[in-house]
Design a protein around this nucleic acid. Structure first.
Lengths: 205, 205
DNA sequence: GTGCGATGTATCGGGCCGATACATCGGGCC
DNA sequence: GGCCCGATGTATCGGCCCGATACATCGCAC
């Protein structure tokens, strides 16, 4: 999941680790709090070893002024490669069971602007199915095993059930919008570009 | 977290692994889907090594009939020890930052029936603070960085923000109930035992 | 009688986290 | 002028937990 997110972000511009973490928090704030460096740096090294990204060491214009003595550890800027872009497209297109999980779905959704509509629909529907199953499980427990559980546990299930029902409704709306060719902000792309300034290129396909 | 959940469940009755997994799913269904065996069995072994639980191999009444030849691998029933009960009480009482995280809070909450009121309040308030911070972060992104993000990412943040606001309201209610001495089902324990049949003993303290 | 789904125990590789360490830089404060 | 502190920045380590996989038994339907 981190791999997908990093590849996606680096496609917008090259970044160093710290920056990547902050952007990740902004983009995925609704999904997870903040990525740990204990995940970030090993993943960056893995991506680099695979050739999806390259390390573009920061070289300021006055590079010759800096002596090696200080052992100045410059910021390491990462940049996505052509293979990396391919990899990202593959990861986005191939929807597996983990694309419907809480985190996986969130990351995929965050990059829907770079995803073709057919894939978007597949993911939204898969997620809906998943949440519906969870909802049914909670209903079963609440109706069939309620007397085995204490008041607090039941309250927890009720709250979870409520969240499931809300998410299903949310997904229904999004699916309906996709089918009618609308984006979440209500605009219909392609018919009226309007005054909106996008820093994200249109999805492939 | 798994440690706490297992100790809590085994306090209600001895169980074997498979059963534990099912009960865990019933009790924590609102928090996580189903625990993996890849977590469950190693944790059981860890708890056993620490002396918190003991392995009570199933010995049917007709044990002598079963020859060793078949290498019948009977179900392994686990039972909590006195030290395990102490450990559980310690884990419940000591609220750390991870008690306010999604999963940690859920597990703690699921065992509120075995938690004293002061600790319940501490956890509910810590959780509220945590969710409020998350909510503020999302509001900031939506108001200050909205133009940097695409419509899908914004929609994701809006949905997350909505979930945060709902949870805060839910927590407010629970906190108010705790302060006025009510349990989630609206009853006031200690004043009217009534016809309710509890299989859970009252909380310590 | 045969296959199949539920029951049941167990391991392995890997992703991700929290804690920790260490270094630089800019600005406020005395 | 000097000092500390919080933000910036890179990096590792131990450990929790997951998904995939393997293997065995039991009851039941076909």
């Amino acid at each position: 999941m981190l791999e997908l997110a990093i590849l996606g972000l680096l496609q917008e511009s090259p970044m160093h680790g710290y920056e990547l973490r902050k952007e990740l928090s902004a983009k995925l704030g609704a999904i997870r709090a903040a990525i740990s460096y204990g995940s970030l740096y090993p993943t960056l090294r893995r991506l680099q070893a695979a050739g999806w990204i390259t390390e573009a060491a920061e070289t300021p214009a006055t590079a010759e002024e800096i002596p090696a003595l200080t052992s100045r550890r410059g910021r390491v800027v990462y940049k996505i490669t052509a293979e990396g872009k391919e990899r990202f497209a593959d990861l986005i297109a191939q929807t597996g069971p983990e694309s419907y999980e809480d985190t996986g779905f969130g990351v995929h959704f965050a990059f829907f602007a770079r995803t073709d509509r057919a894939t978007r629909l597949r993911i939204l529907e898969g997620r809906r199915r998943k949440v519906e199953e969870r909802r049914e499980g909670l209903r079963d427990v609440l109706s069939r095993a309620a007397e085995r559980l204490d008041a607090y546990t039941l309250e927890l299930q009720r709250h979870g059930l409520d969240a499931c029902e809300r998410e299903v409704r949310w997904l229904e709306e999004l699916i309906a919008n996709e089918r009618s060719g609308r984006t979440p902000d209500g605009s219909t792309p392609g018919t009226d570009p309007g005054p909106s300034r996008e820093n994200i290129p249109p999805p492939p396909g």
